[in-house]
């Protein structure tokens, strides 16, 4: 996709900007990956609406303070709870659309096969071990919060802190799923297993309008 064919007015957008820096390895799709990606993308997109909610909560807090002199510890905590859930649940989605920043200088000059091998080793030796340790530690972390019935330390704050701690653990599990999905695509490319799917005539959604991100 080139920038100039974006939109009727040719108005450039941030989404175009991403196309210019992110160099995506064109991995083949597989049945299982498609399934996983679809689910993770749906979760990420749903979580994207949290930004509207956070905006609303902030406005509510500000207006409440000035118009009604209302206390806001609860609203302050609500802000980082929702915002935190937003980006946490977006992490897997960002991996699915391959928007995590890479240093492309050498990478983009390599053959697809070589890129595949890098991806294979990266997923197996860097990403998955990191996620493995994090998940292994996060589950008891969330569990203990549930067991002691942890609430906010501010008396007027939010109860049920375990919910967000559980979302933290869940988010990492979702990234792991996204990594597994990607791993299948890589093995499909390198070893033909699982069987790569033929690209559909109309590109899957995640590769047309969503493969966009931005290095702010």
């Amino acid at each position: 996709m080139t920038v100039s064919d974006q939109g009727p007015s040719g108005h450039p957008t941030v989404t175009d900007a991403d196309e210019l820096i992110h160099h995506h390895t064109e991995l083949p799709d597989t049945g299982i990956s498609r399934l996983l990606d679809r689910a993770l993308t749906a979760i990420g997109k749903l979580a994207s609406w949290f930004w509207v909610v956070v905006t609303g909560v902030i406005i509510w807090a500000v207006v409440g303070r000035y118009a009604f002199g209302q206390g806001s510890v609860l609203l302050e905590e609500l802000q980082w709870h929702i915002a935190g859930a937003g980006w946490l649940l977006g992490l897997a989605y960002t991996l699915v659309v391959d928007d995590h920043v890479r240093v492309d200088v050498i990478h983009e000059r390599l053959s697809l096969k070589t890129q595949g091998w890098i991806e294979l080793f990266g997923l197996l030796l860097l990403l998955l071990p990191f996620l493995g340790i994090a998940i292994y530690e996060m589950i008891p972390y969330a569990l203990s919060s549930y067991q002691v019935g942890e609430t906010s330390q501010a008396p007027a704050g939010l109860p049920h802190r375990w919910v967000l701690k559980a979302i933290l653990a869940l988010a990492f599990m979702l990234i792991a799923l996204a990594a597994v999905s990607r791993l299948f695509k890589v093995t499909a490319l390198l070893f033909g297993f699982p069987r790569p799917l033929k690209p559909r005539t109309s590109q899957p959604e995640t590769h047309s309008q969503d493969q966009q991100g931005d290095a702010a």
């Binding site: 303070r65 002199g69 209302q70 206390g71 806001s72 510890v73 302050e76 501010a154 008396p155 007027a156 704050g157």
Partner: peptide
């Protein structure tokens, strides 16, 4: 204290909130 925007930690914060203060952290 009524309507005062105040940063106040702990149980004391809860007391002030009862008195109508807007307690933040």
């Amino acid at each position: 204290y009524d309507g005062m925007k105040i940063r106040f930690a702990g149980l004391g914060g809860k007391v002030l909130e009862r008195l109508g203060a807007s307690v933040t952290m």
